[in-house]
């Protein structure tokens, strides 16, 4: 009899503990989905929800404050997303807050981020609609990447032509690099300029000692001082 009671006690303990574990697990999952807390509804209309799902997180200033309650296609180009937000955070969310769809990390799930408005605005009410910002989709990024890649391809093709011309000695830069007679002429020109400037200096020294120009040069020297 004593043994049976002991066995029953152990069995009862086992059953109770596992049932409590199950209930706690269910509570935590439900709590994350705002099932057991006071919530209010906020909605936003998006053109493209980019794979957002019912149950996705809603963040306000980076804090999880709610979940997506429902998603409805309202017109051919707009989707209404209803969010369940924790009642405790209502006082911080203003009517001019904006909603944007982003992702949780590089590979994470889609989330809605509520961007705070100015603090002087009115506090948001139940069933209010917030403004939405069109998210930058992967397609947009890919389109820009494609345009950049096309431009880069054009530039590299032009550069190839220029380099080809240079190696063939075409154009000024081509001649500079490839034509040896051009370099010789340039060298001679530089020598001539050097000799010319030396002669010019001597002429100017002689002119400064000439009585016709002495008055003018003295006045110029005085003005410079």
């Amino acid at each position: 009899m004593k043994k049976t009671t002991g066995n029953n006690l152990r069995l009862g303990l086992f059953v109770t503990v596992t049932v409590i574990l199950f209930i706690v697990g269910i509570y935590y999952i439900g709590d994350r989905q705002q099932l057991f807390s006071h919530t209010f509804h906020v909605s936003g209309v998006f053109k493209n929800i980019d794979g957002l799902q019912v149950g996705s997180n809603v963040r306000y200033s980076g804090i999880n404050v709610g979940v997506v309650g429902s998603i409805q296609q309202t017109t051919d180009s707009s989707v209404r997303v209803d969010m369940l937000i924790n009642e405790g955070t209502r006082k911080f969310i203003k009517t001019d807050a904006c909603a944007i769809i982003g992702s949780d990390g590089l590979m994470g799930n889609k989330i809605i981020s509520l961007i705070p408005g100015i603090s002087s605005a009115k506090t948001i009410c139940n069933h209010d609609e917030v403004k939405t910002i069109r998210p930058i989709s992967m397609d947009d990024i890919m389109l820009k990447v494609k345009t950049t890649a096309d431009n880069a391809a054009d530039i590299s093709a032009d550069l190839a032509v220029i380099m080809d011309n240079i190696t063939q000695g075409k154009g000024t830069i081509g001649k500079l690099f490839m034509d040896s007679s051009f370099a010789t002429n340039l060298d001679k020109t530089l020598i001539n300029i050097k000799q010319g400037s030396g002669g010019f200096k001597r002429n100017m020294d002689a002119a400064s000692h000439n009585f016709l120009l002495r008055g003018f040069l003295k006045k110029k020297h005085k003005d410079d001082k």
């Binding site: 199950f22 697990g25 269910i26 935590y28 999952i29 439900g30 994350r32 989905q33 149950g55």
Partner: peptide, 18 residues
């Protein structure tokens, strides 16, 4: 650890499994 465990679990994971 347990916050991360429960953050991605939903009823659709637990109820059918049980």
């Amino acid at each position: 650890f347990f916050l991360q465990v429960f953050s991605n679990l939903s009823f659709s994971d637990v109820i059918p499994a049980i």
